[in-house]
Write a protein that binds this DNA or RNA. Structure first.
Lengths: 207, 207
DNA sequence: AACCACCGACCGTGTGGTCGGTCGGTATAT
DNA sequence: ATATACCGACCGACCACACGGTCGGTGGTT
């Protein structure tokens, strides 16, 4: 004697689907950034997207799939940025490009939050984004290492420079500054601090 | 008609209470480090401690209280370390002390994990450890800033050094190296990387 | 008798995910 | 021109489970 279910009148026409999907990714990006992956519920994303939970799950089979979509979108947006229009930047130009990325990130705190939280959460090997984070770091390191080597080849960077350490500490500075900036956004400028760092680098290993 | 509850035979004698408490804190430290605060259940901590969930909650009224205890314990263990026996270290000695702390942390990955995960999680203002993390950073920055100023006063560090940036980038390097180390523990040495960094600093602003 | 350490049962809430269904639109057959 | 078949988008109801936390106890020690 199950009562036949009632359905709300459709409040508006179904949007194109692709549109809903995109909005969901945007919302998820923001929420994951704010409260982390574990700390964000599918229902919350759905609500802010304007869908029911099942509606959202219609586009993404699972929460992890949603995360993957978010990550892919971020890669797509940032991917070209460091690549440069005419091949990847070499030598100190790579550090400038990184500085430009930092400046750009200063405009988008939610993306920074997303990354910082995710990088920490995904340290756990079982985390759905663990592989992604590992690859992200490896890729970044390879990119910067190549640039430094090229800089040495053209005599722009000293042959004595400890390339590996240089690369690692540069990435470390970027990450660490993000952490501090999220904690006290208006007490500091990531851009300025990063430039102070690269200035020190140039003074030590330049020319 | 509630059935009178059965009780398992006590498997072993009640331990001293203080002992259970301490063990719970140790276990919680490890679990929080592994899966974060949000990602760790009270039940899991209880199980690994050898208590029931209620037994654990007998010692700590809430999960947040357990976190507080963990944090206090960490402060207690690390607090004296940077202080030094005869007053806080000044000038470059402070960087050496920091290096020693990094070296010590290389021995205790779970503490590093705890801090990295917590620092990221607690970026969210509503997080129970938000205040703690903010204070932790402020305190660290003040400590290092004072040390650098003292170093300048005794002519050990250049007057031209941008103190604020120097402090911020140093802390950033420590944090960033921890992140990388957690991701690829046996591909790098935090200690070596940190020393390479301080060497650069000394070369640029020393004497 | 009082106290302490501890436990089992239970509760309300929130979780990710499934299921069967409705609806508008479009392609096709007649 | 109309009927039919199908599809993608979406929803409400529901589920099993895990969560943090409460409550009323027991059993040993002092």
């Amino acid at each position: 004697m199950s009562v036949p279910p009632r359905y709300r009148a459709r409040s508006r026409v179904d949007v194109s689907g692709e549109e809903s999907r995109a909005k969901a990714v945007a919302v998820a990006t923001e929420l994951f950034a704010l409260t982390g992956f574990k700390g964000t519920s599918v229902a919350a994303v759905a609500a802010r997207t304007g869908l029911s939970q099942s509606g959202l799950l219609h586009h993404f089979p699972s929460k992890a799939a949603l995360l993957t979509a978010v990550l892919e979108e971020r890669d797509r947006q940032d991917g070209d940025f460091l690549a440069g229009s005419a091949g990847p930047p070499l030598g100190w130009a790579a550090f400038d490009a990184l500085g430009a990325l930092v400046a750009r990130n200063s405009t988008r705190p939610h993306l920074v939050g997303l990354f910082v939280r995710l990088a920490a959460e995904a340290t756990e090997p079982a985390h759905p984004a663990h592989g992604w984070v590992q690859e992200h770091y490896s890729g970044l390191r390879r990119w910067l290492t190549d640039a430094v080597h090229a800089g040495q080849a053209r005599g722009e960077i000293s042959q004595d420079a400890p390339v590996g350490s240089l690369v690692r500490m540069t990435i470390a500075v970027v990450d660490g500054l993000q952490q501090q900036w999220l904690l006290h956004p208006d007490e500091m400028s990531m851009t300025a601090e990063f430039e102070a760092f690269t200035a020190t680098l140039r003074a030590r290993w330049g020319r």
